[in-house]
C-alpha cells in the first residue's frame, strides 16, 4: 500500500495528454492499487485519474458508492475509457484533489455511454447517469490534460428550474 504524491494546480504537468495503456500486467495492477489508496486517502474523494499522481497513462478509478441513493456501478477501474454517447446537460459543483481550496459549477452531460477496459484487459460498456457520469467526465478530462477550471460556468447564468410550492 502506498499513497502517491498528488500534482496540484498550477503544475503544468496536469496539462499533459496521457497515452493508452498497452500491457495489462502486474506492474499495472500494482500501480492501480497505489492509485486507489491515494483516492481513498483524499477526504470524500469519489474518483482519481493517473495523471493526478504524475503517471500519464489512461487509467481512472471511480467509486461513488458512498453517496446517497443514486444509480452507480460501484468501484470501477476504467482503462482507456472512451465516451461514445452523450445526452442532456446538467450543472453541478465540482472540486478536485489537484485544485485545493476551490470549487465551482461545471456543465456536464447528464447521461453517457462509456467503453473501457478493466485491469485484466476485458472491455466493458457502461450506461451511466448523473453523479457517476459527472465523475467519469471529470476524470477523462484529466487524461486529456483538462481541469474543471477549463469548464467553469457562471452562476449568474445558471439554469433555473421552476419549482412550485403547494
Amino acid at each position: 500500500m502506498a499513497i502517491l504524491d498528488l500534482l496540484t494546480y498550477p503544475d503544468v504537468r496536469l496539462k499533459s495528454v496521457s497515452t493508452p495503456v498497452t500491457s495489462f500486467d502486474e506492474k499495472l495492477h500494482s500501480f492501480i492499487n497505489d492509485l486507489e489508496d491515494t483516492m481513498r486517502a483524499g477526504p470524500g474523494s469519489v474518483g482519481i485519474a493517473a495523471p493526478q499522481v504524475g503517471h500519464f497513462e489512461r487509467i481512472v478509478i471511480v467509486d461513488v458508492s458512498s453517496k446517497r441513493k443514486i444509480k452507480h456501478h460501484g468501484r470501477l477501474i476504467l482503462i482507456n475509457p472512451e465516451i461514445i454517447e452523450w445526452d442532456g446537460l446538467e450543472i453541478g459543483r465540482e472540486g478536485c484533489m489537484s485544485v485545493p481550496d476551490y470549487t465551482a459549477n461545471v456543465i456536464r452531460a447528464k447521461t453517457i455511454k462509456l467503453i473501457a477496459f478493466d485491469e485484466k484487459g476485458i472491455e466493458h460498456q457502461y450506461d451511466m447517469e448523473a453523479y457517476e457520469a459527472r465523475v467519469v467526465q471529470h476524470e477523462i478530462d484529466h487524461l486529456d490534460g483538462l481541469l474543471f477550471l477549463d469548464r467553469i460556468v457562471s452562476r449568474r447564468n445558471d439554469l433555473f428550474r421552476r419549482k412550485v410550492y403547494k
Binding site: G92, R93, T103
Partner: peptide, 24 residues
Amino acid sequence: ALQTLFSKQPDIEVKLEPIETMVM
C-alpha cells in the same frame, strides 16, 4: 421557511436546491 413564505406570497417563484460538491 420558503414554503411558509410562498403560502403568503404566491407570486414569488422560489426554488431551493441542494448543492452537492463532488471531489475528484
